[in-house]
Amino acid sequence: MSDDHRHDPNPHGPAARVKALEELLVEKGLVDSARLDEIIETYQHAVGPRAGARVVARAWCDRAFHRRLMTDAVAACAELGIAGPEGGHLVAVENTARVHNLVVCTLCSCYPWPVLGLPPAWYKSFAYRSRAVKDPRGLLREFGVVIPDEVEVRVWDSSAEQRYIVIPERPAGTKSMTEAELADIVTRDSMIGVGKVLAPSRAGGRRGAR
């Protein structure tokens, strides 16, 4: 992305318009610019998919936590200090040898912010939103995930207040890894359901990329 686009000098463009709108709202006493800075800082740096990865790793290592997570994900995440907007009705769904879960919001872009941060561009794209319910297997193949015919693909369309996090399958060959090491290999994509978690030897240079 070029700097030109980043700063958008086009007076017709949204950058000029949001700047004007913010000025007007500040003058009218409805918005505080310092508060906007805080919100941006929070979603750029404090919130993100590392929180979800901690939840998954804990669930893999601690059977009692896993049980609590599957029963009441909000309470289980709160144990790890994870909570916030769009997380008040969090539901964890688990991949197994028989079921592969995939999360979408066909109507807009609902997403579990406290555990995954804000969604990637593709999650909000028309292609993803339109295809996830009708062609989940074709879509997954584009992400490099091939689901055998006899495995159920279970698509969760987050149309109401519930927000979903997928608990991916723990890869084989990770028995000796610590919880913190496991959290490092859990990807954002695996928690949306478009990726699988790979053991470190196979993840190689892709570690943490997605």
Binding site: M1, H5, R6, H7, D8, G13, P14, A15, V18, K19, L21, E22, L25, V31, R35, L36, D37, I39, I40, Y43, Q44, L118
Partner: peptide, 10 residues
């Protein structure tokens, strides 16, 4: 971009 962040926060 910076303006996207501004729109989100606003």
């Amino acid at each position: 971009s910076d303006w996207e962040a501004r729109v989100f926060a606003l």
